[in-house]
Amino acid sequence: MTKFEIRGVRADVLIGADERQEILKGVDLTIDSGQTHAIMGPNGSGKSTLAYAIAGHPKYEITAGEVLLDGENVLEMSVDERARAGLFLAMQYPVEVPGVSMSNFLRSSVTAVRGEAPKLRQFSKELQGTMKDLSIEASFAARGVNEGFSGGEKKRHEILQLELLKPKMAILDETDSGLDVDALKVVSEGINRAKANSDVGIMLITHYTRILNYVKPDFVHVFADGRIAESGGPELADRLENEGYERFVKAGAEQ
């Protein structure tokens, strides 16, 4: 049983040497293992900032609050320690790392997170099987990390990593954006497999309700102006689908 708690988190985006802007203005959220929480909200509300700041992206700085994974403050850990502690971030814009082969990268990553090098033959079988489940051609393993991948290919590889690394807590940042319906199904199935095979807690950040038809949320939160503006069950997503984010954008603008 894992508990993931975000308490009073405020964060700035670092724009230049002396320039910064506060984006997160006090975020509180608790996610238990096995639960799926959808974070929805208008563009620019700070959803992605929340994801990146928790993962330790160098462009963001958390200025107040804490983020606890089973009571341990992950903000005191380095980026790689956070991942080894069981935190995973599927990025909206996965990074291309030229010259580093996907297979080499995945083996290094799995070795670091699991604490020991997997047996080569076993790992190769596991990798091939998971790639196949996500309709990723075997030849991708030899290519550079995300190098020249299409948007959809990058997202599939993010979910590939989710399945291989088996985190306690996964933040999926707009994994659905830019996907056609077929790709969305493949990716959603991957997320659902990860849920079925483990007790992973999921924070699913999305702008659209579309992915929620495939990945069922237990809770839905509306993010506006750097904080959670409203929380509810899956029915809140339906309401947003009908009404849009207008009332939250207005509320944010008035502050």
Binding site: A55, G56, H57, P58, S78, V79, D80, R82, A83, R84, L89, M91, P94, V95, V97, P98, G99, V100, N104, F105, S108, S109, A112, V113, G144, V145, Q161, L165
Partner: peptide, 20 residues
């Protein structure tokens, strides 16, 4: 950041990127 966010320690991540 990307490599480290996958658990790879900093020195190893540096080596991977330079080697790449």
């Amino acid at each position: 950041f990307y490599l480290r966010s996958r658990g790879i320690p900093e020195d190893e991540a540096r080596r991977l990127v330079i080697r790449g």
